[in-house]
Structure formats: structure tokens, C-alpha cells
Amino acid sequence: MRNKQQQTTLTAWDLTQFKAFLREQERAEQTIEKYLHDLRALMVFLNGESLTKAALISWKENLQENYAAASVNAMLAAVNSYLSYSGRGELRVKPLRMQRDLFCRVEKELTRDEYVRLVQAAGQRGNERLALLLQTICATGIRVSELQFITLEAARSGRAEVNCKGKRRTVFLPEKLRRMLLRFAKGRGIGSGAVFCTRCGKPLDRSNIWRDMKALCESAGVQPGKVFPHNLRHLFARTYYAVEKDLSRLADLLGHTSISTTRIYTVESGGTHARQIERMGLLVT
């Protein structure tokens, strides 16, 4: 850590040291890269100028003009983390105040029918692996980064032991999904380890999964803005909550430490609310 008095600018050397620190803290690699990306953006903005509270507030204002509030707060979180690490906590900037959306935008909500069409489109393309992958995420609620834990052994036992972001949890595999995974693994000659992998046995890259999903949009008749792996996890959450109305248990299934996070996953477009109001029959004339 550099001496506070010497810390007047932000340099590539500082980022290298911060990266090493984050790895020592066992932060997820994706988080580390996100933090470094945001800090590089700040470096470009500073253009060699001193790292001061005034400069950071100016950067925050610049971000507000170009990014959504959630994105601004994510970038500020990265910088604030660095400031705490480097002993400059007094420079930390406050995140933007955000009111939680009661409803999500219709153009972002993936419906069950749309999900079914995506699976069918993958099958019609002869992409059995993609069709099964979509169903695995949607039927379990796992993150795309956790697919590596869907192993042949997990398919046999009905439970996948997920170790992600320093947290461990058990993901339950429905019986029908177990049979599908076992049949797929047998057909591909997979004798052990991850079911969703390359021919070399490495876990599938998330960017390739994203690209393959986007390629289904036109034939499935689904808007591209709705088609990405994490939206399948949201569909799982909404479907579970609609049946069970149990946020605490849903949080456990999703691997959330805070129910506040889980609430975000159960937000709908409001279509159900609108239909319920229509049925109330309170209009007289």
C-alpha cells in the first residue's frame, strides 16, 4: 500500500498492486476484472491529474450523463473499494440514491412461453447441448458461471455442490433433468466431470453461451433484449415465488445472502397486477 501523502495520482502500478490485493482476498476473477476496468476508466478521465475528492465528484457527474444509475453505482463501488484499500477512505464518494422498481420493463421480462420457444428453436437447430443447457439453468436457477458444477456425479446423485464466490450451496436437480443429463452425457461419451464442456473437457465460455442464445432469437420469435443466461435465472425465481410465496427459501436456492437481492428477482412487468385489477369490477358506469 502506498503512503497516503504520496498517493496523488492513479497509475498502472497502483492497479497491479490492487489486483494482487483482491486476489489475496479471494475475490471472484470476474469481480477483479470489473474493478480494474472501472479504475482504468477513471485513469482516462483523470488524464494524469491528482486523485482528489473534487476530481472524483466531477467523474461521478460525468458518469451520470452517460450511464444508468445502477451502472454508475457499480463503477463507484469499484473506486471506493480501491480508496479504502489505499488508505484514502476520506475520498470515497456516495452512490446515487435509487428507488427500487416495483415492476420490470415488459421488453426485459422473459415469459415461460418465450423460454419454451427458445428451447424448441435450439432443438430444431440440432443443438441438443444448448437446449439442455437452457433447461438446466431455468430448472435449477443456477448462474451461468456455475454450470461447471453440473457434473455427471451430480446428475447421478440429484445434487450439485456449488462453490462460487467463496460461498457453498447445494443445487437440487429435478428427476426429469437428471435423466436428461445422464442420457446426454452417455451419448457424448462423458464418463465423469462437467456435463457442459468443450471437446477438451473445459467448461463452456459464457460469451459463447451468450452468442449461441442470441442466435435463437429470430427463429424463436423472442426479442434479443430478453435473451441472456441470467434471465433464465430470473424466470426460475419468478416461477418459484408464484407457487411457493417463500422469499427466504428462494434466497437459499439462489445462493443469496440478502432477501433484498432476492426481491429483485421476483419483480414482474405488472401484467398480472393489471389483470387482477380488471377483474375487480369496481367501475359502476
Rank of each mutant, 00 (worst) to 15 (best):
residue 183 R to A: 15
residue 101 D to A: 14
residue 179 R to H: 08
residue 147 L to C: 08
residue 196 F to W: 05
residue 135 Q to L: 12
residue 164 C to G: 00
residue 73 N to C: 03
residue 88 R to F: 03
residue 186 K to S: 15
residue 152 L to K: 12
residue 74 A to R: 14
residue 197 C to L: 02
residue 153 E to V: 09
residue 110 L to V: 00
residue 160 A to N: 09
residue 67 Y to N: 07
residue 138 C to H: 03
residue 84 S to C: 01
residue 85 Y to L: 05
residue 158 G to R: 02
residue 77 A to V: 02
residue 131 A to W: 01
residue 185 A to N: 07
residue 160 A to V: 02
residue 77 A to K: 12
residue 88 R to A: 13
residue 89 G to W: 03
residue 91 L to D: 06
residue 168 R to W: 14
residue 155 A to M: 10
residue 147 L to A: 08
residue 126 G to E: 05
residue 87 G to E: 04
residue 136 T to P: 11
residue 134 L to A: 05
residue 102 L to P: 00
residue 176 K to F: 13
residue 144 V to N: 01
residue 197 C to I: 10
residue 184 F to S: 05
residue 149 F to L: 00
residue 154 A to E: 04
residue 180 M to E: 15
residue 128 E to A: 14
residue 143 R to N: 00
residue 116 V to K: 13
residue 166 G to V: 05
residue 138 C to A: 15
residue 69 A to G: 03
residue 103 F to P: 00
residue 68 A to R: 15
residue 105 R to N: 09
residue 183 R to H: 10
residue 187 G to W: 06
residue 181 L to H: 06
residue 153 E to Y: 07
residue 89 G to N: 13
residue 129 R to A: 09
residue 93 V to R: 14
residue 89 G to K: 07
residue 109 E to F: 01
residue 113 D to T: 11
residue 145 S to Q: 15
residue 164 C to R: 02
residue 151 T to H: 12
residue 111 T to H: 06
residue 184 F to C: 03
residue 122 A to W: 06
residue 109 E to Q: 14
residue 187 G to M: 08
residue 86 S to L: 08
residue 113 D to L: 13
residue 86 S to W: 12
residue 96 L to T: 12
residue 152 L to G: 00
residue 119 V to R: 13
residue 182 L to M: 15
residue 184 F to L: 07
residue 179 R to I: 03
residue 179 R to C: 04
residue 77 A to F: 06
residue 91 L to M: 11
residue 92 R to I: 13
